[in-house]
Design a protein around this nucleic acid. Structure first.
Lengths: 152, 152
DNA sequence: TCACTATATTGACTAACTAAAATCAAGCTG
DNA sequence: CAGCTTGATTTTAGTTAGTCAATATAGTGA
């Protein structure tokens, strides 16, 4: 497995991580990566709000551009969930894992994939398509919301 | 299994289907259901364009309202795919099935679920959440696009 | 067929994201 | 380590998907 900044978690490492993928190590990109590693499944707006205190000139458009570039180079992964309008991002890209989302509060957690690589399951009849990966999102009720569900 | 208009596929049946769910059988709703049954996985804009010739006064907002109401009552199912910005809808609601999408041309096909009811798979560790269903979208390359992929 | 009320229409509005032009800075070159 | 080149960010605008509120219309029961 290649060297991943998550292992040492230092700003300097994110810079090298970016350069290793042929991207310039700008303060904005480092800030986005650093925040996203501490808070996975954040959307563009959340990232923007989080990094703005340290980089007052950053724009929301720049965040959109950065997450687009970073996911294009495979440094982060873009995830889209049925119950949220905006795309979310995470730094965990080495393995093939899935997500659970609470349909009441929207809370998202990682779910390890037992196979570990994509595609972890294959359909019976795929209409002649070559399957590359399976995007799986479990939808359920989290322990906090369970007691708040009105019984029918 | 309850009576489903898909079995006879006649406009009059859609009207009864709507009334059976406590909804008024308006021409707009029937048109949306009828089109959606003939062309599954259509989005709001496509539905709008398709039904407009027969109902010149219909508005895109009405289509949004209709698909919202119909999915709320379980007459249609809303699906959101990673590689398409807009939500899509289908009349196939009786069973639990999944989808394959070509990452190149966007083509979508149904994939039968071997289990047939939700959730067909359960995660190992669900963070204490009660899993209701698994949303599974396979991403791949369709036979038409396969030869067009540039080899590296 | 009339009235009641659900539903559709109209128009304004928001969120998420993309595009284009102009400015700025990372990091190579001498 | 100063200047240059080019990639990255900022700024401004625009697009797409969808929601909200008020009014007009049409389905259905009486």
């Amino acid at each position: 497995m290649p060297d991943h900044p998550a292992d040492h978690c230092h700003v300097h490492e994110w810079a090298n991580y970016l350069r290793a993928h042929g991207l310039r190590a700008t303060s904005q990109r480092v800030a986005v990566l650093d925040f996203l590693h501490r808070q996975p499944h954040a959307d563009a707006e959340s990232i923007f709000q989080a990094v703005r205190p340290g980089l007052p000139t950053i724009s929301l458009q720049a965040v959109h551009l950065i997450v687009h570039d970073l996911s294009g180079q495979g440094l982060i992964r873009r995830i889209s969930l049925p119950d949220s309008a905006s795309a979310r991002y995470e730094t965990r890209v080495e393995d093939n894992h899935h997500h659970v989302q609470c349909i009441r509060c929207g809370r998202i957690e990682d779910v390890d994939c037992v196979v570990g690589h994509a595609p972890c399951i294959e359909p019976d009849h795929a209409h002649g398509m070559r399957i590359i990966e399976a995007s799986i999102v479990f939808r359920g009720i989290c322990p906090d919301c369970e007691p708040k569900i009105p019984k029918e």
